[in-house]
């Protein structure tokens, strides 16, 4: 692929252009056509607010009432509107988008980092001890496939606090892939590295820090990457279900407002947040990787 000299971004731009154009064409509103409708029916539509009377005595669609799927221009306008008040807090549930992004990123980071620390520790322990691995494996196998959202009612009941429950849901989502990969990485460390560590009489901690963790780092990072995606997927419905302010909850608020352009804007922001977090993660991953 790298031999290709065609800049990929040109193709990306073309795809984006075609998509926006297609979206616009599909969602463009035809002018209101009163032909075939009686005066009574027109009055009925006007009464419902679907149409409004224009100055010259005709009718047109009510621009304040959304119909069908909003087009790109509407979503664009919504985006501009939202970004212009990004840092404002207008009410309990009406915080600017910058605040919502901050809430989601903080919630995600708290759950993900806590889960990673726990998962790496557990992974190292069971990776080092085949006995521990075999004895804990049945539990891991049963717990691993449970959707992190399935824990939510139980957690909500136990911790009695939606803020902590949302973080715990992210925690559960991020836990298992890192445990499994760390255990695998640690248990498959080349024997001669461990032999060098034992020749050098490194203490348990030094052995862990200077040999085991660096040697298993590529596998651990691979596990963290899977956990990262799974936690990112979990944070959105967790916010929705718990009513915790954030970009995930924003989609639900906008849905309750029947503001479909707002829903689309929120979806876009979820994607952008994912890209930002992923970028940060990749920078981190590059620090610990090495070529064999």
């Amino acid at each position: 692929m790298k031999s290709s000299t065609q800049p990929a971004w040109i193709i990306s731009l073309v795809i984006l252009g075609v998509f926006l154009l297609g979206w616009h064409l599909v969602t463009v509103q035809p002018a209101f056509d009163p032909a075939g409708l009686s005066e009574e029916q027109l009055q009925g539509l006007e009464f419902k607010g679907d149409i409004v009377r224009t100055g010259d005595g005709g009718y047109r669609y009510n621009p304040d009432k959304s119909r069908g799927i909003p087009g790109p221009l509407v979503v664009f306008k919504k985006t501009i509107d939202e970004l212009s008040v990004a840092f404002e807090k207008k009410g309990t549930n009406d915080h600017g988008i910058a605040h919502l992004v901050r809430y989601t990123v903080t919630r995600f980071a708290a759950g993900f980092i806590a889960a990673s620390v726990v998962a790496i520790l557990v992974g190292v322990l069971i990776g080092l001890s085949p006995l521990l691995y075999r004895s804990l494996n049945p539990f891991i196998q049963v717990l691993k496939p449970i959707s992190p959202l399935a824990w939510m009612p139980l957690m909500l009941y136990s911790v009695q606090d939606p803020t902590w429950t949302a973080i715990l849901v992210v925690f559960m989502a991020a836990l298992w892939p890192t445990i499994a990969n760390t255990a695998f990485g640690v248990s498959t460390i080349r024997k001669d590295y461990l032999q060098v560590a034992s020749l050098l009489q490194l203490s348990w901690w030094r052995r862990l820090l200077t040999v085991i963790l660096p040697a298993a780092a590529p596998a651990i990072v691979a596990g963290l990457r899977i956990s990262f995606g799974s936690a990112l997927v979990a944070v959105v419905p967790a916010e929705m279900l718990l009513g915790e302010l954030g970009v995930g909850y924003l989609t639900w608020i906008e849905w309750n407002n029947l503001d479909i352009s707002g829903v689309m804007f929120a979806i876009l922001i979820v994607g952008v947040v994912g890209v930002i977090l992923d970028f940060g993660f990749n920078r981190l991953a590059r620090l610990v990787s090495y070529a064999e």
Partner: peptide, 13 residues
Amino acid sequence: RMVVFQSFALMPW
């Protein structure tokens, strides 16, 4: 007793 390994056993990182 230091060992010199056939596989070198150097830490690649």
